[in-house]
């Protein structure tokens, strides 16, 4: 499978000490392992089981995801920063695959 598409809504600039809203979304089927295909064969479980956001290599937001989460999970969170840096969005898939993308944030 090709790399799933990751999308991020985050400001490029922020003011020191103020709240920054972040939204991120990954295009992923989130196969639960409970569904059958049209031949009656169970589609094996393959979900994004964890999402981590790092800011300058420090974990600032972590969430565990389960089968009940719909396809194309969307995650919204906020953070407060004092320094400029790099936001890294990391998605962990069953069977160990990891997908990530980054965004720059300038704080003044």
């Amino acid at each position: 499978m090709t790399t799933p598409r990751m999308r991020v809504k985050a400001p490029k600039n922020a003011i020191k000490g103020e709240i920054v809203e972040i939204m991120t979304l990954i295009s992923h089927p989130m196969d639960t392992g409970l569904r059958k295909d049209k031949h009656g064969i169970i589609i094996p479980r393959k979900i994004i089981n964890k999402f981590v956001c790092k800011y300058n290599d420090m974990e600032v937001f972590v969430v565990e995801l389960h089968e009940a989460i719909s396809a194309n999970p969307l995650i919204q969170f906020s953070l407060v920063t004092n320094d400029s840096g790099i936001l890294k969005f990391i998605w962990f898939e069953d069977e160990g695959k990891v997908y990530s993308t980054t965004r720059k944030l300038r704080v003044s």
Binding site: R7, K9, M23, L25, S27, P29, A71, N72, L74
Partner: peptide, 13 residues
Amino acid sequence: YGHMIEWFPGSAG
């Protein structure tokens, strides 16, 4: 169509 169609609401892209 499986996952051929993806829908994004206004607030999510």
